[in-house]
Amino acid sequence: MIVCVAVVGHQNNPLYIQSFTDADDALKLHHIVHCSLDVIEERVNNPKRSGTTLNEAFLGLLYPTVNYKVYGYLTNTKVKFILVTTDLDVRDTDVRSFFRKFHAAYVDAVSNPFHVPGKKITSRTFAQTVSNIVGSYGLN
């Protein structure tokens, strides 16, 4: 189950962060998302060490914590997408397809002429699309 998704700007500022749990661990998820930025930085700065190639936006598993797994995705504009899940075995293809859909939703949201680049995403349509994507995750 996906418990949290986040969009982080290129200055590592949060643009959108939404958790999908009933329990009140939103704060903990914020911490996890924030810490995973370190891994992204490390991976982007030292591309040799990681298996992922430079051309790929999908960064793979960022780091496992006690109960969660964190996946990352980096767009060309240095906007990061982060996914936190509680699933233990995650198929890479699922995560990839999730990020692809998520990226498309993000592009739609920032293409809004009233959106100022670099500001937080407050679009309700975006939130709705994201929750749909999250809901459909892992079903297929």
Binding site: D38, V39, R43, K48, R49, G51, Y63
Partner: peptide
């Protein structure tokens, strides 16, 4: 771990799992 090739490992390992800091933090959490 610059010489390490993670592709060979069955479980994909992430950067910080090679540092004690990660384990100290989780030990504290447990």
């Amino acid at each position: 771990f610059s010489s390490l090739n993670q592709g060979t490992a069955e479980i994909s390992l992430t950067e910080f799992e090679f540092y004690p800091a990660y384990y100290y933090q989780l030990a504290a959490q447990y």
